[in-house]
Computed example of a mutant assay.
Amino acid sequence: LELIFCDLELVEKRLERMEQGAKRGKKPDEAEKRLLLKFKDALERETALRDIEFNIEEQKAMRTLQFLSTKPEIVVINLRENDLNTEKAERLQKDVQEYLKDRETSVITLCGKMEMEIAQLLAEEARAFLDDLKIKEPALNKLIRLSYNLLSLISFFTVGEDEVKAWTIKQGMEALKAAGKIHSDIERGFIRAEVIGFNEFIDSGASMAKAKEKGLLRLEGKNYIVKDGDIINFRFNI
Rank of each mutant, 00 (worst) to 15 (best):
L1G: 13
L1H: 14
E2W: 10
I4F: 02
D7E: 01
D7F: 02
L8R: 10
L8Q: 04
E9L: 14
E12T: 09
K13Y: 08
M18I: 13
M18N: 09
E19S: 14
Q20D: 13
R24Q: 13
G25M: 01
K26N: 11
K27I: 06
K27P: 00
K38Y: 01
E44L: 03
A48Y: 05
D51Y: 06
E53F: 07
N55K: 05
N55M: 06
E57Q: 12
E58C: 02
Q59G: 14
Q59T: 12
K60N: 08
A61F: 09
R63D: 03
L68Y: 12
L68T: 06
S69M: 06
P72D: 03
E73P: 02
R80A: 11
N82D: 14
E87Y: 09
R91H: 12
R91P: 00
Q93F: 07
D95M: 14
Y99S: 12
L100M: 09
T105S: 02
V107W: 00
L110R: 09
C111S: 11
M114W: 08
E115L: 07
E117A: 10
A119F: 11
A123K: 14
A123I: 15
E125F: 05
R127N: 13
A128E: 14
D131Q: 12
L133E: 02
L133C: 03
I135P: 02
K136E: 14
L140A: 10
N141G: 01
I144R: 09
I144Y: 11
I144C: 10
R145Y: 10
L146K: 08
S147L: 03
N149Q: 13
L150C: 05
L153Y: 06
I154H: 01
S155V: 03
T158D: 00
E163Y: 07
V164W: 04
I169A: 09
G172H: 04
E174I: 15
A175I: 06
A179W: 10
G180R: 04
D185S: 11
R188V: 03
F190Q: 04
R192F: 11
V195E: 00
V195G: 05
G197M: 07
F198Q: 10
F201V: 05
A206G: 11
K214M: 13
K214L: 15
L216N: 04
L216K: 12
E220W: 07
G221F: 05
G221P: 02
K222F: 05
K227L: 13
D228S: 05
I231R: 04
R235K: 15
